[in-house]
């Protein structure tokens, strides 16, 4: 079945599981429509592979509208491909030319082991959140919406930080595989709000500790994360986390 008139060569990373070595495999994507998303192009290729009795390419996806953060693909040397501010599922084939060769790799980081082919295990992010990315509350009846007044600027900035979808593009883009942009967004979204104040010291110390234990690299402020983040999370969050971390270290008069 033909959908359009683009023909492309794909060089895709194939890897059985995290314990085996991977390699590149070349595929032909034929009859691709420029209006397709990058993932739909992969669907076409996979359908063809299945029809030929071959193994399809494993890749992660869920919402296909830029909100779940699953579609981790490193395309021609950049996370989520050549455009800024979008995820792979929001990337259209019109961003490529007929006859192009496209190299697709998984996120590469010690903290993101490959599950299969292009799918990586980002549960290290979950463990960082579990280490402190929450506000402890006694659940009861829902409170009145405006019970606690919040400065509009702070609310906006917390909201911007909360836009992070945990996709991991920041880690993939960073030459050091640093997770600072993600962690700083998760620290900031709570540190900026009154509800987050009470636990803010423990939060930042524990989350950074977990981040280091997961094997992410050290930030060198290249700014690649901010440039590639689909949600335009700002480097200001990293500075805020550095500040919060230093202050918490000095202020916390505990031997742990």
């Amino acid at each position: 079945m033909s959908h359009g008139n683009m023909n492309l060569t794909l060089k895709v990373w194939k890897q059985k599981n995290k314990d085996t070595k991977g390699r590149f495999e070349t595929y032909q994507a034929k009859g691709i429509s420029p209006d397709m998303s990058f993932l739909e192009m992969f669907d076409v290729v996979n359908e063809q592979l299945i029809n030929e009795g071959k193994e399809p390419i494993a890749f992660d996806h869920d919402c296909r509208e830029g909100i779940c953060g699953m579609c981790s693909m490193y395309i021609n040397g950049r996370p989520h491909g050549p455009k800024q501010g979008i995820t792979t599922c929001q990337l259209h084939m019109r961003s490529f030319k007929d006859g192009d060769t496209i190299v697709v790799e998984p996120w590469r980081s010690a903290a993101f082991p490959v599950i299969k082919d292009l799918a990586v295990d980002r549960s290290s992010f979950d463990r960082i959140i579990a280490a402190g990315g929450f506000v402890s509350v006694n659940t009861g009846n829902a409170k009145d919406a405006n019970n606690i007044l919040i400065n509009k600027d702070d609310a906006d900035e917390a909201f911007n930080a909360a836009a992070c979808i945990g996709c991991g593009a920041c880690v993939a883009a960073c030459k050091n595989s640093s997770a600072m942009l993600f962690v700083s967004a998760k620290v900031s979204q709570l540190a900026l709000l009154p509800q987050g104040q009470i636990e803010k010291q423990d939060r930042v110390l524990n989350m950074v500790k977990q981040m280091d234990e997961e094997g992410f690299g050290n930030c060198t402020n290249t700014g690649a994360c901010e440039a590639e983040c689909p949600k335009a999370i700002s480097l200001e969050n990293i500075a805020r986390m550095n500040r919060e971390y230093s202050l918490a270290t000095f202020a916390q008069n505990k031997i742990k």
Partner: peptide, 9 residues
């Protein structure tokens, strides 16, 4: 060390 397998491109 944080990126044991590097990118091709």
């Amino acid at each position: 060390k944080a990126r044991p397998v590097g990118y091709e491109v």
